[in-house]
Amino acid sequence: MKKILVTGSNGQLGSELQSLSSGFPEFKFIFTNRSVLSMDAPETISTYLDTIQPDFIVNCAAYTAVDKAESEPELADLVNHKAVEAIAKWGFLHHAKLIHISTDYVFDGTSATPLKENDATNPQNEYGRTKLRGEKACLLSNPESIIIRTSWVYSEFGNNFVKTMLRLMKERDSLNVVEDQIGSPTYAKDLARAILDIISKNDWTGGIYNFSNEGEISWFEFAVAIQEIAKLSCKVNGITSSQFPTPAKRPAYSLLDKSKIKETFGVNVPEYRQSLEMCIKALN
């Protein structure tokens, strides 16, 4: 029985992989979190992997505190770059297949058309820079790796925009949400299903792929959709990014083109609102 090791299993994507894993009895799953496998100590990673000997590694672990990364660049780099390099090197030496999760923040947000995998990268914050270094180290150390860039991830698990909006909309009469940042959200369950489908198909093609739900919206429109689906009375107002300054600069446009992952693996990419309805229903 082939073994799948999932790192970062307490996060949104890792939790969704755990919840779907029972539907794939042909695999043995090992789920690790930072108490078992510490990504900020890359030198310990190969020893741990030696004991597990996985056939597949899905690296969901990451330093994702985007604003905090501006003041903790060394820690962010350890987790998002050096640890990824260590995993990729071990995978190459032991013929383990690696799926590594990356981000739309590797782009600068100046595009006007959906971003393709080979478009020029130019991250605008420390988080994006460390994630890009991780991507490069991953492919250099293990060229057959699959890297999946995703954006605006939410789920029933962990902290995310959808859960924050639902909470605030119940507490307040009105909310201000940025309307000049465009992209598409990703329901972590959809991404988890895509990952497990890719692994089970046994038709491996390494490289960089994009995955987010279909649709082109702003954070403001995302919030309005949440409010409508949850039938909450809170008023949502659109504001500009300059009215809501953050330590880390966000890309103004990061809509991902999903053609490659659909054509290569036949992956299903649901429309964002359909997935959002499913998540809100599950939360309720």
Rank of each mutant, 00 (worst) to 15 (best):
M169V: 14
T205F: 12
C138W: 11
F157R: 03
Q181E: 15
S174I: 01
T150N: 04
E216I: 13
T164W: 15
L132Q: 12
K131Y: 13
S151M: 05
F161W: 09
M169L: 14
E228R: 15
S145D: 02
F220C: 11
T186Q: 02
G215I: 03
I226R: 02
Q181P: 07
Y154C: 03
T164A: 10
Q181C: 15
R172T: 10
S200F: 07
M165H: 01
S200M: 12
I229E: 00
W152M: 05
S184C: 07
I226W: 00
A188C: 12
G215Y: 08
R167H: 13
K189E: 05
R129P: 11
F161R: 04
R133N: 11
E156H: 08
S184K: 00
S212C: 13
W219C: 11
C138Q: 09
A225S: 15
P185C: 12
N160C: 09
L132M: 12
S212N: 08
F211R: 00
I148Y: 02
I195A: 01
T150P: 00
N202F: 05
I199F: 15
E179K: 15
V178N: 02
K201Y: 09
V162L: 00
N176R: 10
G158R: 01
K136P: 03
F222W: 15
I199Q: 09
L166A: 03
A188W: 00
A188K: 05
I226T: 05
I182V: 15
E216Y: 00
R193L: 11
E156I: 11
S155I: 01
L139N: 09
R133D: 09
S212A: 10
R133P: 05
N202G: 15
I195W: 03
